[in-house]
Computed example of a mutant assay.
Amino acid sequence: MTRHVLALTLGDPAGIGPEITAATLARTAGADGHHGVAVGDPAALRRGVQAMGLGVEVRTVDGFDTEPAEGVIDVVDTGVLGEDVPAWGKVDARAGRAAIAAIETATRAALDGEVAGVVTSPINKEAIWAAGSAHLGHTEMLGELTGVTQQDTMFVVRNTAQEGHHLRIFFTTRHVALRTAIEQISQERVGESIRRAHTALQVFGLESPRLAVAALNPHGGENGNFGDEEIVHIGPACVAAREEGLDVSGPVPADSVFHQGLVGRYDGVLSHFHDQGHIPAKTFDFDGTISVTVGLPILRTSVDHGTAFDIAGTGQAGPGTMLSAYLAAVDYAPFVDNIRKAYAP
């Protein structure tokens, strides 16, 4: 049996990353077919184990080619903090450096084929900026490390009522003000987003994907009475995609398209701004919704929440999203060759 090895970064050691990583690896230790290895400072991971009250051993290893064992969590030491771990719940430049080092180590391992993919815990932007990083966050950092400039976010939402069906949600715009996002909507931008989403669905195992494009305005704009973006930009982009042979529906009113996707009518939905896609996904299943970075030549899944400094170190952090991100990486590990081929810089 092929065993897929995955690297799990600890994220900011002052946040909940070490706790949710420890809980995820404790639950999956010794499983058949996959092995998760933490990346970060062992002392931070041990502190996470203690906070979560886990009866597991933390074993420091030199590399990712290790033999898994029940009750044992392996960690590759990045050597930033030693035994002096920053206080819980505080922005700290040393924590930022530790988070960056873990990302760099895990990414190199994925590029070199030592691991099938990377699962990332949350980082704190202020901490990485204090450590000297100029990046806005994970995605930009990973882009520089892998040599690519175009990355997209793909949310994966599982509907357990539809066995085997995962809805993927894509985004035309990224982290910008809502007013700016609306201004960025154009036929060209929507068309490019449709094609990238369609490619991603194929890369991740769907031969003939069905993609729906959300409308921007209420009721799809009501023939221009509630806004004309559907007429001027979104509709023509959908028509052009269909003329290229893609199975694309839309624009579909946003108050129904996500439900239709969840029940199996579509494999993916292209949303146009941050909250349009985030709110339905997280309302349906906050812990089960995970993020995949599309466009990198490596597999990367992630939680889609922050460092939760307010509860860090208390053992209250729920590991559900981290576990979902890990299991999604296990599911997608067989497509690593597709990912490398499609997104090589």
Rank of each mutant, 00 (worst) to 15 (best):
E114Q: 15
E163S: 14
W88M: 07
K125V: 15
A98F: 10
R158K: 10
G96Q: 12
E126R: 12
I123N: 11
H166P: 03
K90T: 12
R97K: 15
G164P: 05
A99S: 01
H165D: 09
V118W: 07
F155W: 08
S121Y: 08
V118N: 01
I123H: 09
T105C: 13
A87D: 13
V115A: 03
H166I: 05
A106W: 06
L111R: 07
Q162M: 15
E126V: 02
G147V: 00
G147M: 11
T107V: 15
W129I: 04
H166E: 02
F155Y: 02
A127R: 00
A106K: 04
A99Q: 00
V91C: 10
A134F: 00
A99Y: 02
Q150M: 00
I128H: 08
M154S: 00
T139Y: 02
E104Q: 15
L111D: 02
N159D: 14
V156K: 11
F155D: 00
A93E: 10
A101M: 07
A110N: 12
I103H: 09
R97Y: 06
V148A: 00
V118G: 00
V156L: 06
P122V: 14
V119D: 09
E104G: 04
G164L: 13
W88D: 11
G96H: 08
A95T: 14
Q162N: 09
L111Q: 07
L136S: 09
D152L: 00
A95I: 13
I100R: 10
A127H: 05
A95K: 12
T105M: 12
E126K: 01
A98P: 10
P122M: 14
G89D: 03
R97S: 15
R108H: 01
V118E: 03
A130G: 05
N159E: 09
E104H: 10
A102C: 09
T107D: 08
G113D: 03
T153N: 01
M154I: 04
H165N: 09
T153V: 09
A101N: 05
A93Y: 02
S121H: 05
G132P: 03
E140K: 12
A102M: 01
A87G: 13
E144A: 13
G147Q: 03
